[in-house]
Design a protein around this nucleic acid. Structure first.
Lengths: 195, 195
DNA sequence: TCTCAGTTGGAACTGAGTGTCATAGTAGAC
DNA sequence: GTCTACTATGACACTCAGTTCCAACTGAGA
């Protein structure tokens, strides 16, 4: 059967992916993202450069593919909010699963990931690109949520973008303070700054 | 004198820079940013690849260095706002010089620039990086403006980031509509979505 | 056993960006 | 006008990311 075959392959594939990424992440943290070449990563993982690159597509993706589920999680959470809720409040709540995922144990893992991204311009830029890719779906969810359509698409776009920036600003402060203040509270604070 | 010497050189340098960028911009618009190589650009300009790259540092910068004055303009405008004004209103007004520069005649020029950036992921990403570089200075200006300090640095950061995103969202809609609705009104609309 | 899709490694290639070096040009001091 | 720094330039070699192609291998189903 086609489905079974592709799915078993897919399972193996994502397991290998996970394993390769784990090793690479250690190297990046130890030596710095820019110092480690694809050849280094492939050699350490015991595969060829071709194979390594086939699993991720780009060097940045080795680190950033872990953020992929966050986009879907946010869209789903936004869809689940009650229709009457204000956009801004709904967007705040849509970040809950994102926060949960980033702060789940071991806490140092999420922190290390964000620290690596934060101190590597190339990773920052790519992460922002990734987030930009989530936006259309978030705007779409926001549009469907309120049939009343009081807001133009530009306004919805502005709210979604601002919400993402609140998250990013909160993350930056959270990392800078070594995770001390709760990320939840920081995101609340950032959201409060715009209402 | 050191000052005079460097300044005459600098004038010549920036004139050449302008000229090289003008030619390159045409090529990018005609053939697409990714299709044109640095060799193409250098050959068309009649200089070596080394020289061309020395003027800009990177291929993206050939297009994006024109945005550099916007950051300074925004910071200056923010500094000039009355101390009592609300942060959000002050940030909106700080965008006026940016809007003026992007919409000044010939209008098609700013539009073409934004269109090229908008349809080229690499340029989008770099522009966002550039804007991220403006943020600390904007937060600083905002901090100095209101001695009262009711807001945390996270809140100021969130407001600045949100304001930048309002500008970006407005620009995107403006370009999509071929510059028809006034950019001023679009930025107002985006800002209104967050208050 | 045969077949076939998917995986792998290897090699060659393009293109961006860095670094170095010798040379040519030029602004300013004398 | 000449000399002297400083600067700009072109040429070249180099590293590294990413793409493309190909040949060999693997593993599951017919």
């Amino acid at each position: 059967m086609d489905v079974a075959r592709t799915s078993t392959r897919a399972i193996g594939r994502s397991a290998v992916r996970e394993e390769l990424a784990r090793g690479a992440f250690g190297q990046f943290c130890r030596e710095g993202f820019d110092k480690v070449t694809l050849d280094d990563l492939a050699a350490a993982a015991g595969v060829s450069r071709s194979t390594f690159l086939r699993y991720f597509g780009s060097k940045e993706e080795v680190v950033l593919f872990t953020f992929d589920p966050l986009g879907d999680g946010m869209v789903d959470a936004l869809r689940a909010r009650p229709a009457g809720e204000e956009d801004w409040a709904a967007l705040r709540r849509a970040l809950d699963p994102v926060i949960a995922r980033l702060t789940r144990e071991p806490a140092s893992e999420g922190l290390a990931l964000l620290r690596l991204v934060g101190q590597t311009p190339a990773l920052c830029a790519r992460l922002r690109e990734k987030q930009a890719g989530w936006r259309p779906r978030l705007v779409q969810s926001l549009t469907e949520r309120s049939e009343a359509q009081r807001s133009s698409s530009l306004m919805l776009h502005a709210r979604v973008a601002a919400a993402m920036e609140c998250l990013m600003a909160a993350l930056e402060h959270w990392v800078a303070d070594e995770g001390r203040p709760g990320l939840d509270d920081l995101v609340d604070e950032a959201f409060d700054a715009l209402s």
